[in-house]
Amino acid sequence: MKRFYAIGFALLLAFDTLNLVCFKLAGTHALPVEMNLAWALRVFSYPWIYGAVVGYIGAFVTWMSLLKHAPIGPAFAASHMEVVSVMVLSYWVFNEPVTPTQIVGAIAIVAGIACLAVAEGDEGEHDVVPA
């Protein structure tokens, strides 16, 4: 069962990352941003946008299968860990600079997500305040 979670979370992370990287590529190829049909056509004329859609669908299916068994807390945290994977990949694939400000911000965000994940796990059952 542990293996099921490990593979499931890794797959979720992979689909989310694929989605974001493809979105970035789709957007970059369609520059400049204009709110008109020409821009929309540019977005859809490259294959990247379809990679993003595959990422969406894959992440959705993986998420739903995981939630059937996995506790919501860790699942919630894992579903937001793409901030880290995307940072590593952006540095590597897009040669984006990773600044100290970004690292500090990312640490705070990940710590916050961890708190929310623990809170989801502990308090999930009595979630709603009585009126």
Binding site: L20, V21, F23, K24, A26, G27, T28, A30, L31, V33, V43, I49, E82, V83, V86, M87, L89, S90, Y91, F94, E96, P97, V98, Q102
Partner: peptide, 13 residues
Amino acid sequence: IAFLSLVPLSEGV
């Protein structure tokens, strides 16, 4: 899509 094309990906996420 429009937002991510204007900022670095890591920052946008």
